[in-house]
Amino acid sequence: MPKATVDGAARPPRFDGLTAVFVNATLKRSPEPSNTDGLMRVSTRIMEEHGVGVEVIRAVDREIATGVWPDMTQHGAEVDDWPAILEKVLAADILVLAGPIWLGDNSSVMKRVVERLYGCSGSLNDAGQYAYYGRVAGCVITGNEDGVKHCAMNLLYSLQHLGFTIPPQADAGWIGPAGPGPSYLDPGSGGPENDFTNRNTTFMTYNLMHLAAMLRAAGGVPAYGNRRSEWDAGCAPDQVNPEYR
């Protein structure tokens, strides 16, 4: 919560110690400009100004193998950069998936990232919960055609299903006018100046930081009733055991 200064004015909150990973699922390899990166940087700038350590990964620049296992080199792939990326995700408090719209849907690169995140869904944390518990997630979407809400819906569902905690208003996006048109960073697009987009991006960013700080202070999500390890051991909380009927 913001603290009052001597004169009673609100002091902006600090989130020192929190870390965030942004995965940009653009189809454009570096150093080609990415419109998704342009909007994503609004969020990363706010986080960095408030003490969050941020790392940005452009997924298309990495050799991310196709598959749903944590390390696909153990399943036939010659090269797989995903294990190193996953290590960064698991070490962070915040994950933001950012990507473009193609034919009204998330990019092929984004779908591969989500598939690889799913490959760790069976792993457990030290409390016996699924590995992504205790982390928050959101998404940023850009394009010049309809699909922001559809793409965000798909990503936020996927992220919460895997165990991430989703704060209120955890998505932001920009598409400009309906139908093909200028992209976010194109001259005269109005994207960087768009008040609605900037408001949603700011709200998303603060909600991610606030909830991440709350989860860290609480030691993560309470473990009672959601431990996979207990369930597998036959200790299912609040389930009737037919042997005692």
Rank of each mutant, 00 (worst) to 15 (best):
K3F: 11
V6Q: 09
D7C: 05
T19E: 12
F22W: 04
K28R: 15
N35F: 10
D37C: 00
G38Q: 04
G38K: 02
L39M: 12
T44S: 14
R45C: 12
M47S: 12
M47N: 09
M47A: 13
V54M: 02
E55M: 05
E55W: 01
V68S: 14
V68R: 11
T73C: 14
T73F: 11
Q74H: 10
V79W: 12
V79M: 07
W82S: 06
P83I: 02
A84D: 13
I85Q: 11
I85T: 12
E87W: 00
V89I: 15
A91N: 12
V96Y: 03
G104N: 11
S108D: 14
M110I: 01
K111A: 06
V113K: 00
V113Y: 00
R116M: 13
R116P: 10
L117A: 07
C120V: 05
C120G: 11
N125R: 02
D126E: 14
A127N: 08
G128T: 02
Q129A: 10
V136L: 02
A137I: 03
C139F: 00
V140W: 05
V148P: 00
H150F: 04
C151Q: 10
A152G: 07
M153L: 02
Q160T: 09
G163A: 11
T165W: 00
I166R: 02
I166N: 04
D171I: 00
A172M: 08
G176W: 07
P177L: 03
P177G: 04
A178W: 09
A178F: 10
G181F: 07
P182V: 02
P182F: 05
L185A: 13
D186P: 01
P187D: 14
G190D: 12
G191H: 10
P192G: 09
P192A: 11
Y206P: 06
N207A: 07
L208G: 07
V221H: 00
Y224V: 03
Y224G: 10
N226W: 03
R227V: 08
R228S: 14
R228D: 15
S229E: 15
D232Y: 04
G234P: 11
G234Y: 10
C235Y: 13
Q239K: 10
